[in-house]
Design a protein around this nucleic acid. Structure first.
Lengths: 125, 125
DNA sequence: CATGTATTTAACCATTCGGTTATATACATT
DNA sequence: AATGTATATAACCGAATGGTTAAATACATG
């Protein structure tokens, strides 16, 4: 993460079950750190660190209310992550469809000519 | 990642720009390790490690063709990751920010007189 | 001001990560 | 069998991760 690579920090923040659970909780509304920590058998500093990761990834923002620092979920990075994933998932599906079409066509003229070898020969030595 | 936590390993695999670029390349079709390594100024073992991470996350599968181990993208984990993120779509779609908040407040007038503040007060001290 | 509550920071530790170079393995070709 | 090509493994390294405990900070209230 040498560059301000928002996708990397987003995915990295999501790559931990505790942090995903925290986000899940926050999707239902703001919560204080102690409230967020409650479900976990983990020290407060550990939660604090997780929150810092989420904050750095801009997946949450934080307020100031007396001695509380309420956490609020921010969806923008999630949307960007979703966009990225969907892009390639769609590409893959398109490929799948083309392959499917190809196979269907091949099966249709099953008896014709040569055995359909994988259309993926090594291009250069 | 002590448990077979597929979401964690998927997100973690996606949390690296090299690996995302590899997936991007693979979304256009199978490729050998050397082909995948070409765009990067990085040693082959480094690429090999990245591929192992992707494989462990089941984001790619690998074949055996003479001395080549062609890599192929697998979309299932992407689908699951996408599903997880999409859970929160409602959240970001509801967030066309201040205008939306204004409209919400205006609509709220059809049931109560006072502004419905977020029912999120600190519950216990 | 003293105390209690909420949260962060500091220091530490073991493990994982992302890279390296050097070496080994597998296969094809000559 | 020897060589070349494709890839993996081993051993190592510094930095980041995810956790801990202990101490510091910030605020509210008696």
């Amino acid at each position: 993460m040498l560059a301000p690579d928002h996708l990397s920090s987003t995915f990295q923040a999501l790559a931990d079950p505790t942090r995903r659970a925290i986000l899940s909780r926050l999707s239902q509304g703001e919560a204080s750190v102690t409230e967020l920590a409650a479900p976990f058998s983990m020290s407060m500093p550990a939660i604090s660190k997780h929150l810092k990761v989420l904050e750095r990834a801009k997946l949450i923002s934080r307020g100031k209310e007396a001695q509380w620092r309420p956490c609020k979920m921010e969806a923008a990075p999630l949307q960007q992550a979703s966009d990225w994933v969907e892009q390639y998932r769609a590409m893959w599906e398109a490929r799948f469809d083309r392959l499917d079409a190809y196979l269907t066509e091949v099966q249709a003229k099953d008896k014709s000519s040569t055995t359909p070898r994988k259309a993926n020969g090594r291009k250069k030595s």
